[in-house]
Design a protein around this nucleic acid. Structure first.
Length: 115
DNA sequence: GAAATGACGCGTT
DNA sequence: GAACGCGCCATTT
């Protein structure tokens, strides 16, 4: 098994993020595990922080418990909340409530963020 | 090379 | 359920 360079890993993380469908939600930890990084949540966050793709749906990536990772009140927090609401989601404080009826998002609706 | 930092996660209190 | 603390990981100071 070839070891992945930091840049390659970043690319994989960004690709996995792009694969999240409209209305879908994933957590940093879940995303990390999918890529074989059991404790790589922070690594995923690092990759998103350095992304340059304006079309990257980074707002669909949440912290455990479906909470926004940015500090409440920060610009990032407001931006992410705005984008998620634009996709039909609802909020209770920093917590995101997935509200979708199509089968594609059923996954996200039932998805438990920390598992 | 040690200490601090951050878009994290989880058990405790 | 909120606040806190500690562990994890890579980067930066």
């Amino acid at each position: 098994m070839k070891a992945l360079s930091a840049a390659e890993l970043d690319r994989l993380i960004l690709d996995a993020t792009r694969a999240i469908p409209f209305g879908g939600l994933r957590s940093y930890g879940s995303l990390a595990r999918q890529l074989g990084l059991p404790r790589g949540a922070r690594r995923v966050a690092r990759a998103l922080a350095g992304n340059q793709d304006p079309d990257l749906p980074w707002h669909r990536v949440l912290r455990a418990g479906a909470r926004i990772a940015f500090p409440p009140g920060s610009a990032g927090f407001a931006e992410q909340r705005r984008r998620l609401i634009a996709e039909g989601h609802r909020f209770v404080g920093a917590r995101v409530i997935a509200v979708h009826s199509d089968a594609d998002a059923l996954d996200a609706a039932l998805w438990s963020p920390d598992r």
